[in-house]
């Protein structure tokens, strides 16, 4: 092959990454073996907080980057991970596509970091998973210890009276088992993968939806690739983006069935309950606009917020 592209992934390989596997297979096939991917999972080429830098400097060719890990670099991209903005994984992706097509600030921040966006991973909606079924109501969540990460989800838990806890992902299972945690808070696919339904058979949700990691290619690598290969990669990226949304819905439904078959109970939130949540939590999109104002980027942020609100209202 002519091009061996190192792809740094922070996640372990698994059925979650099916669409990315398909993307890889399609590019390899269409370039007739001129491109070959060396995908390294579980942070083998760089941990979650290293990959963006590594891709920008050409140390990895492609990276799966979680915007929330780079709150100071990806000022715009991280907005795709704000809770209570998007009604479903599909809407989050729609918002991403809109932003990267119409609001230059999104692409510009990536240019500065010397990476290009290929596509976004949509995350399945988040559910609480814990031993007790009290997560069904906001009242029931009062004082409950919930595992969170990043900056927005802790704020949201804090706002509704739950207690956000920082627990390493690998410790969740035992923490639930021993009561150090009352609830994990992740998508059903992860609840299945980590088997969190064993210590926490009561699932409540969907509580929120957002975009997951972003697959980027380093600018140096991009400049190295001939035009025809770039075209193939972009075409396949677009297909992967479309397919990812359909896939995540199907896959989460499959996981839901699987965990129910293992004895878990899914308590679905009603629209009223979701509205209650929305009301109790602060307007984090507005907070984001405020933060970016402080960094002199308020205009583009406001434009984004307005556009997204309009998009979600339809």
């Amino acid at each position: 092959q002519e091009f061996r592209l190192n792809w740094g992934h922070y996640l372990a390989n698994g059925p979650f990454l099916e669409v990315e596997d398909e993307f890889i297979a399609a590019v390899e096939e269409r370039t007739e073996g001129r491109v070959e991917f060396n995908v390294v999972y579980s942070g083998g080429l760089g941990a979650g907080d290293e990959l963006l830098t590594l891709a920008g400097r050409g140390a990895v060719d492609i990276a799966s980057v979680v915007p929330g890990y780079y709150a100071n670099q990806l000022l715009f991209a991280k907005a795709l991970q704000i809770p209570f903005v998007f009604g479903s994984p599909g809407e989050a992706i729609e918002a991403a596509e809109y932003a990267y097509d119409n609001i230059p600030a999104f692409k510009e921040e990536l240019d500065q970091l010397r990476v290009r966006r290929l596509f976004h991973q949509p995350l399945g909606s988040y559910y609480f998973a814990g031993p007790s079924d009290e997560c069904q109501t906001l009242d029931g969540l009062q004082g409950k210890k919930v595992r969170t990460f990043g900056s927005d989800i802790p704020k949201m838990m804090d706002a509704v009276g739950a207690v956000p806890q920082s627990v390493p992902a690998g410790d969740q299972y035992e923490a639930l088992e021993r009561g150090t945690l009352d609830y994990a808070f992740v998508n059903i696919g992860n609840i299945e993968a980590y088997r969190l339904y064993e210590p926490g058979p009561n699932l409540c949700g969907p509580a929120l939806s957002m975009a997951g990691h972003m697959v980027v290619v380093g600018e140096r690598t991009w400049q190295r690739l001939p035009e025809d290969i770039r075209t193939i990669i972009m075409e396949e990226a677009e297909k992967a983006q479309q397919r990812y949304v359909e896939w995540v819905d199907a896959s989460e439904a499959g996981s839901a069935e699987a965990v129910e078959a293992e004895g878990a109970t899914i308590h679905a939130y009603t629209d009223e309950q979701l509205a209650q949540w929305d009301e109790a939590a602060p307007d984090m999109l507005a907070q984001w606009v405020e933060e970016l104002e402080g960094r002199g980027k308020g205009e583009a942020a406001q434009e984004t917020a307005d556009a997204w609100r309009e998009l979600m209202a339809d």
Binding site: L54, R57, G58, A59
Partner: peptide, 23 residues
């Protein structure tokens, strides 16, 4: 195998990421 730029980039991220760790 992949160039000095890559080696230096790894040297830029590894020490901090490894030590700046709660685990």
């Amino acid at each position: 195998t992949i160039g000095s730029g890559a080696a230096m980039a790894q040297l830029a991220t590894v020490p901090f990421s490894t030590t700046n760790s709660f685990t």
